[in-house]
Write a protein that binds this DNA or RNA. Structure first.
Length: 726
DNA sequence: CATCACGCTGTTTTT
DNA sequence: CAGCGTGATG
């Protein structure tokens, strides 16, 4: 069905210009809530309307889901053909292209994609090869190593530089980490594997070095649009350049103020470089906000005015409202929780829906205290963010069985075998070695010469694989059911909370039902993990009655969601390495952007809660279950003109002052081993941890008097220390 | 050689 | 809180 659209009626002048300009490079600077998606949707519709075949249009978005939603909307409002527009993430595009051209890079077309935890497992398995001397303390753990390697790949930095800049505490391990990186790369090559970073790196390589591929792609995708351009990294922006190299029909949309993915190499400066790369770029600013009331926008404008590098834009709105954003100065986490739960209760009493409310946190674990409070008060809530469905152990276990059928990879074998009783690390590796050497198909695993009575589990496993082998070539649903039958007993044995996990696993059956081939199912699961809220709800305190929900969320997963009242909990804690503290102006900038993103989610009211300024210059702790906060109020809020925000205080007396270090309660002590580990202001952190080892060493080195209490059977509890007065 | 219990460490965000 | 390493036990 094709509807004629009167664009002038539904778009404002800036949006209209973005929609009607079809050729040549365009940069759309889309402020928060300015109808960015709407603009993209109409532009897709317009392109199709003027006769561009939908499959010639490429829409790169942040998530696959975002692409689908946009295309559905475009299809609904004008032309059903919009559904056939090519849309997806950089990674899914790369995957499609690489499946076709893998041989040009020395890969087979059936290479395996590694997700983050696969990567970590491989990294972990390589560590012994480094032959690190025994007794070496604090070698980074697998997830940290994976982070380092991945980030180095993403920002195109040497591992040395990255370690110096961001992982100073691991400086002494740099040579080993570099070696690890090389071994990991080798491993991937010999096993025909690519991780997420490789996908985009190889795509760029293909485009840069192979003119044929570039021609083919730019002929295929004659119109390219990129959403959330501020969140692309340099590699991705290179890909964009190559894709548009021949035709220059490229539109990128983003907001330099909303860049939140710098931790994985996103570079908002791409927004500034775009007009340089593409001369004669048309720059269009969308500044009218349709979401918030003016006081909130005035506040966010003022916030971003402080940014050092930006496209100057000024958000405005026609929405009426005069409530100022409130800053509520609490002193402890329990107080924050108390304040919010009281607000929520009043809100409910006034008969307003609880789903109006959202609480944004920068990090998932900042919500623990509030979650506990809400649970105690019987206030239902849903938590978004946190660990993904696919990353949980049971899902990985489960899928490993299927993956072996598609690709005999060692990572999956390790998972599968470790689930069998009486098979540990040693036997696992012996079996894998045996399988590899003798080219044993999975169904013959029971023939392993080392198997005795104890390893009866191998027989069961063989049976499973025999069944799966028979199902080869059929639709994946049946295979999934077979694995389910095999795995459920293991699940029940392994996890106490198996009912929940079982339910999650059962979701896989209908998903598999939509696929014809097992391989496609698995590849999509890795590249396109289910991201609906239902999938993301964390086990912790989640309620299924989702009608009345207070949504807790990290800033990140809050993208694209809206609420009337938003609380922002802004915890400044001392857990980050030195580059993230406020001595670093770049970190301040990033914090400001995060705050901007968070605040522009608000519709009517915005309430910020955070610990107030203390006179303790270094760090201090709060009571039971508290956090270590660093220097309270953030400078970029306190610098703002007073009439933009209203400050309130819950008026709790200062607990500690005048000491470099105040007190460490035993509970807090257990929880807060992070943070600044040298206890001198301005000193660089040498250890990531602030645990008993570091404390006692510090005490010894500095000959500081310390009082130990609660020296129990378990652990030396350091309850109170007093260091020198400032 | 596997497993269990215990103690310790390190905790963001995600394709 | 969970994941890791270690050392004791079977």
């Amino acid at each position: 069905m094709i509807k004629k659209t009167d664009y002038k009626k539904v778009l404002n002048p800036a949006q209209l210009e973005a929609v009607m300009t079809l050729d040549g490079p365009i940069l759309v600077i889309a402020g928060a809530g300015s109808g960015k998606t709407r603009t993209l949707v109409y532009r897709v519709a317009r392109l199709v309307e003027v006769g561009i075949p939908p499959e010639d249009i490429l829409l790169l978005t942040f998530t696959r889901k975002a692409a689908r939603e946009m295309l559905d909307r475009a299809a609904r409002l004008s032309d059903a053909r919009c559904r056939f527009v090519s849309g997806g993430t950089f990674h899914s595009l790369a995957f499609k292209v690489l499946r076709t051209y893998a041989d040009l890079l020395g890969f087979t077309k059936t290479f395996t994609i590694l997700d983050r935890s696969d990567m970590e497992e491989i990294v972990h398995s390589i560590i012994p090869e480094l032959q690190i001397p025994k007794g070496t303390a604090r070698f980074p753990k697998r997830s940290t190593l994976a982070n380092i390697l991945s980030k180095a790949a993403n920002i195109q930095n040497s591992i040395d530089d990255l370690i110096i800049e961001e992982y100073g505490q691991f400086l002494e391990f740099a040579p080993w980490i570099k070696k690890l990186g090389r071994l990991y790369t080798d491993y991937k090559k010999t096993n025909q594997m690519m991780d997420y970073d490789d996908l985009i790196l190889y795509l760029r390589k293909l485009l840069a070095e192979n003119e044929e591929v570039r021609k083919a792609l730019s002929q295929k995708y004659r119109y390219v649009m990129v959403d959330e351009y501020q969140d692309t990294n340099t590699i991705q922006s290179d890909i964009v350049k190559w894709l548009a190299y021949d035709h220059r029909n490229i539109m990128v949309v983003g907001d330099d103020s909303q860049s939140i993915y710098s931790f994985r190499g996103a570079n908002y400066k791409n927004m500034f470089d775009f007009p340089v790369e593409f001369p004669k770029t048309k720059i269009i600013k969308l500044e009218e906000n349709y979401r918030s009331i003016q006081p909130i926008l005035t506040f966010t404008n003022a916030l971003m005015d402080q940014a050092s590098e930006k496209y100057t834009k000024c958000l405005f709105t026609k929405r009426q409202g005069d409530k100022l954003p409130r800053v509520v100065d609490t002193r402890t986490e329990p107080q924050q929780a108390e304040f919010i739960s009281r607000y929520v209760k009043e809100h409910i009493q006034q008969g307003r829906p609880i789903s109006d409310l959202a609480v944004l946190f920068r990090a998932g674990y900042h919500s623990f205290e509030l979650e506990a409070k809400l649970t105690r008060e019987g206030i239902p809530y849903v938590k978004y963010g946190g660990f993904k469905f696919l990353e949980s152990a049971h899902i990985k276990d489960f899928l490993a069985h299927l993956r072996v059928m598609v690709n005999n990879d060692a990572v999956s074998w390790v998972r599968i075998l470790r689930l069998i009783e009486n098979v540990g690390q040693v036997k696992t590796h012996a079996i894998i070695e045996w399988v590899r050497k003798n080219h044993i198909p999975p169904e013959r695993i029971r023939e392993w010469p080392g198997a005795g009575k104890k390893e009866g589990g191998l027989k069961q496993l063989s049976k499973l694989f025999t069944r799966l082998a028979r199902l080869r070539g059929t639709k994946p649903k049946k295979s999934v059911e077979q694995v389910m039958e095999y795995y459920l007993p293991i699940l029940k044995e392994k996890f106490d909370d198996y009912p929940r996990r079982q339910k999650e696993l059962e979701q896989l059956i209908p998903m598999a039902g939509r696929y014809k081939k097992l391989r496609g199912f698995i590849d999509d699961l890795v590249l396109e993990p289910p991201t609906s809220p239902a999938d993301m709800v964390s086990p912790r305190g989640a309620r299924s009655s989702a009608t009345k929900t207070l949504t807790l969320s990290t800033v990140h997963s809050a993208k694209g969601l809206e609420w009337s009242v938003v609380f922002i909990i802004w915890v400044m804690d001392g857990r980050f390495p030195p580059s993230r503290t406020y001595e670093n102006p770049l970190a301040l900038e990033e914090e400001r952007r995060l705050m901007y993103v968070a605040s522009t989610r608000a519709k009517d009211q915005l309430i910020m809660c955070y610990p107030g300024e203390e006179s303790v210059p270094l760090w201090h702790t709060y009571g039971e279950g508290g956090n270590i906060f660093r220097n309270g109020l953030s400078s970029f809020i306190s610098d703002l003109p007073e009439d933009l925000i209203s400050f309130e205080s819950t008026g709790i007396q200062k607990r500690f002052s005048g000491y470099k270090q105040a007190s460490i309660g035993s509970d807090v002590f257990r929880r807060n081993q992070m943070g600044s580990s040298e206890l001198n202001p301005g000193d660089k952190v040498k250890h990531p941890a602030f645990g008993p080892g570091v404390i006692s060493k510090f005490i010894a080195d500095n000959k500081v008097e310390v009082i130990f209490r609660n020296v129990g059977r378990k652990l030396l509890h350091l309850e109170y220390t007093t260091l020198e007065k400032i």
